[in-house]
């Protein structure tokens, strides 16, 4: 255990030296929440979907975050809810990255008609407010975890597409790409070996920023009842269930899920900004 930790610390050392406070704070938040979600069964004895006590009890030593209107333990719902949120959000952003990046590369590299067609489709998707688009897709597909992932993924494809297309356009006119053409490299090789690696830093930054945004979209979807069906623990869904009781003074039903949503989104945003600083600085150094 200790050796493993030491190893990770050593691997990360050169990064952490350059890391700003922003990145460190963001990483701390994100890693803590991920760890809490993974180790949920060790941290709480209650199941998140079984009535374990009286309804609407305030936080106490027995129920750290109180119980909700159905008598479920809020603390376990927060921990297990983190699993749902992270699964949905990370798989959705990964999915949209895997679609958006290749499309952007093709569009930017080949240009002409291919580019026109993709750009028009992507721009019209981009023109929709993201939550409305996700809602529409989720409403058509019906509430389930997979459908929520698809709905969120579709919304973020244009973000990757536009960024990758723009960068590809500028990189493909650089001298080292011309040099690759001059030695006779085929298009696929040029795209994969010469353009993509030079895009990676930007893709990583956009990926983390995107997760932050997707967390809010996911919360919005489930708040409106279009994500995972109850009683699956999910922060957005808990927010919705609890908001009716807020005026009656049962603040813990909304305060904890709301705080977690905010904290996780902020954590990823901080990581994104921090990485942006490091990666663009590195690029500048090489010039």
């Amino acid at each position: 255990m200790n050796i493993g930790f030491e190893l990770i610390r050593k691997m990360l050392a050169p990064w952490l030296k350059e890391a700003s406070l922003m990145l460190k704070l963001g990483l701390a938040i994100v890693i803590t929440i991920i760890a809490l979600s993974i180790t949920a069964p060790l941290l709480t004895q209650y199941s998140p979907i079984i009535k374990v006590g009286d309804a609407l009890r305030p936080p106490s030593t027995k129920h750290l975050m109180g119980t909700n209107n159905l008598g479920y333990d809020m603390f376990s719902r927060i921990l297990y809810g983190g699993r749902t949120v992270l699964t949905v959000v990370v798989s959705a952003t990964l999915l949209s990255m895997c679609i958006g990046v290749p499309l952007g590369l093709i569009s930017g590299y080949y240009g002409r008609i291919v580019d026109r067609i993709f750009s028009i489709i992507m721009d019209s998707m981009y023109a929709f407010p993201s939550l409305i688009l996700a809602l529409a897709i989720a409403a058509v597909l019906g509430p389930s975890m997979v459908n929520a992932i698809i709905a969120i993924a579709v919304v973020y494809i244009p973000t990757y597409f536009r960024m990758v297309r723009g960068q590809t356009l500028s990189i493909k006119s650089l001298l080292y790409v011309e040099a690759a053409k001059a030695i006779g490299a085929r298009d696929l090789r040029i795209i994969i070996k010469h353009i993509l690696p030079n895009l990676l830093p930007t893709i990583i930054v956009v990926f983390t920023m995107n997760i932050a945004d997707a967390i809010l979209t996911e919360a919005g979807l489930s708040f409106l009842g279009f994500s995972v069906p109850p009683p699956t623990p999910d922060w957005g869904a808990d927010l919705r269930a609890g908001h009716e009781y807020l005026l009656a003074g049962y603040w813990w039903l909304v305060a904890f899920p709301g705080f977690m949503i905010m904290l996780l989104a902020a954590g990823f945003a901080l990581v994104g900004e921090g990485l942006n600083d490091i990666l663009s600085l590195r690029g500048a150094e090489k010039r």
Binding site: L175, E178, A179, A182, I183, G184, K193, H194, P197, N198
Partner: peptide, 23 residues
Amino acid sequence: LRPLRRKIQIIFQDPYASLNPRM
């Protein structure tokens, strides 16, 4: 052009831009 590219090569002016920074 591919077989021809083996025979005709170019050396560019700017050695700072003609090498892929990630290779």
